[in-house]
């Protein structure tokens, strides 16, 4: 589904990713675990076309993404739940969702179906349809960011720290939604610092440290290793 080959990204002379290779198979939840500054957001931005890699390749299905315009990714089946959510703050919840479906805006029937599915996943969004996005709570905004991504009928969703700043109860709601996405056949690449919660729902995981993949494997097996535990035993580790 998604394959990164030796991907490197630099900001000026700061190199943020140093030859990262990674593979996401269809139907998987793949976790990308790393602490602050590891390069998680950089990797996701590179996939989304928002930063240009200095070396390496990104393939989505059979397509070489680096040859495509950034905005083509939605049509190719990729959606992003970006760092800081990046909602259209002054616009309503409904407008945000409708814009999520921009890449298939001519298919009104599909949009209506997808809207119903998003509302089923996050009933809170249905109640708040006409509220302006920026006035919603952090948890509601995260639901909306995920809902907006789902509105494009993606095959693959890239998520950048969806649990950040949320109470444990909301985190489990969001992660529950991610599991349901997998049941619907959506593939997920989930970048997180919250290793405890993430490795529980992921199938496989990569550990990113200072721009390099230092460990990878089955999520549960990684969780068993002492190093991951030591590095990421956060406040709410199980």
């Amino acid at each position: 589904m998604l394959e990164l080959v030796n991907l490197s990204v630099s900001y000026g002379n700061i190199s943020a990713l140093k030859g990262v290779s990674l593979k996401v198979e269809p139907g998987e939840i793949v976790a990308l675990i790393g602490s602050n500054g590891a390069g998680k957001s950089t990797l996701i931005k590179a996939c989304a076309g928002l930063v240009r890699p200095t070396a390496g390749e990104i393939h989505l299905g059979g397509t070489n993404l680096l040859r495509e315009a950034p905005r083509r990714r939605a049509a190719l089946g990729m959606a992003v739940v970006p760092e800081n959510r990046r909602l259209f703050g002054e616009m309503s919840v409904r407008d945000n969702l409708q814009l999520g479906a921009y890449s298939q805006r001519h298919d009104r029937k599909a949009i209506a179906e997808d809207l119903a599915e998003v509302f089923e996943l996050f009933p809170r969004l249905e109640e708040r349809q006409s509220q302006r996005a920026m006035t919603m709570s952090g948890g509601e905004q995260q639901m909306l960011a995920i809902g907006r991504a789902l509105m494009s009928r993606p095959k693959l969703v890239l998520m950048d720290e969806p649990s950040i700043g949320l109470a444990p109860k909301i985190v489990s709601l969001i992660f529950g939604a991610i599991k349901r996405m997998r049941e619907h056949g959506i593939t997920v690449l989930l970048a997180e610092q919250n290793a405890a919660a993430t490795l529980k729902i992921a199938d496989r995981a990569y550990v990113l440290e200072l721009g390099r993949v230092t460990m990878s494997g089955k999520a549960l097996e990684l969780w068993e290793t002492d190093k991951v535990r030591k590095l990421y035993l956060g406040g709410e580790a199980a």
Partner: peptide, 24 residues
């Protein structure tokens, strides 16, 4: 209209607009 909303979305956040497929 969806095109008008896309215009407002671009005005608010060009990177986010690009991510949902709007031609900025």
């Amino acid at each position: 209209t969806i095109t008008g909303k896309a215009m407002r979305a671009c005005a608010l956040d060009k990177a986010a607009a690009t991510m949902v497929g709007i031609p900025v």
